[in-house]
């Protein structure tokens, strides 16, 4: 019984700040402290959101944004995880590539967007390329560090039991570096959304980032907030699904609860 009560309390504690936030958001424009023109209350945003959903307009932009983000992020994962394994495993390879990687990753993705547009045009490819550019670094670097931090004792132990190189890789290196890779994926996913929005604001005629700026230009403020809220929800879903992935793949890890 007390457990149920505790659970309830915990849930309440988790949502209370959110509730206060939404109440303030509703009340501030209504009371006239902040102009309603600039700051549409959540009730109005919600109605607009539903209307945009029914008309299909919101889904159109969301699906285009998702396509771009998932393609860029997916390509980064497909290419960078294997590359990270190679660079983590073969020291000489990493030594050669490290200087280049460190320099390139400091080059802001958005500063390169004009370059991508020059080479790849204003279409989809340049936007996917800029997302890929931003998403690749956390994946690459976390995979490398995951592979490098495999406990040498585990390698010894596996070899003593007759593991071949392939089996060593499959049964020791991959599971051991998995938590680090997933952390990289999480960072990358968050980064992908940031780059996506910026790229769509700069050079696109569709997508959620484009919608935010376009609706602002046209002074459709509730619509603008609806697009912002959609982006926030996308970010939340992405993060929680990757946290879930992390938990299910690393259930063998000691849970650390700092309370």
């Amino acid at each position: 019984m007390s457990g149920k009560k505790q659970n309830l309390q915990r849930t309440l504690r988790k949502v209370i700040a959110l509730l206060v936030f939404f109440i303030l958001w509703e009340l501030l424009p209504a009371s006239g402290i902040i102009s309603k023109v600039y700051f549409a209350p959540p009730s109005e945003v919600f109605v607009t959101l539903v209307r945009l959903m029914i008309s299909g307009e919101l889904w159109l932009h969301t699906s285009i944004s998702l396509q771009r983000a998932i393609t860029g992020f997916g390509l980064a994962a497909i290419i960078m995880i294997p590359l990270g394994f190679l660079m983590g495993w073969y020291k000489s390879f990493e030594e050669i590539a490290d200087g280049l990687v460190q320099t390139l990753r400091q080059t802001s993705s958005l500063s390169l967007f004009p370059v991508f547009i020059l080479f790849l045009g204003i279409g989809e490819v340049s936007k996917i390329a800029v997302i890929f550019w931003g998403a690749q670094w956390p994946i690459l670097l976390n995979t490398i560090s995951g592979v490098k931090s495999v406990d040498p004792l585990l390698i010894k132990s596996a070899r003593s039991m007759g593991s071949s190189a392939i089996s060593l890789f499959r049964k020791v290196v991959i599971p051991s570096s998995l938590p680090s890779i997933i952390t990289g994926l999480r960072l990358s996913a968050t980064h992908s959304i940031i780059v996506l929005v910026a790229a769509e604001m700069i050079g696109a005629k569709s997508g959620l980032g484009y919608s935010v700026i376009n609706w602002e230009y046209n002074f459709m403020i509730p619509e603008m907030y609806a697009a912002i809220v959609t982006l926030a929800v996308l970010g939340l879903i992405t993060n929680y699904s990757l946290v879930w992935l992390e938990k299910t793949t690393t259930k063998w890890k000691e849970e650390i609860n700092i309370t």
Binding site: L153, L154, K156, S157, S160, M161, K171, V172, P175, S176
Partner: peptide, 19 residues
């Protein structure tokens, strides 16, 4: 190494992801 020898290490060397 081969299956005719088994090693027990001081640091256990268990695979943490395996039960």
């Amino acid at each position: 190494p081969n299956h005719d020898r088994g090693i027990v290490f001081q640091g256990y060397a268990l695979f943490p992801w395996r039960n």
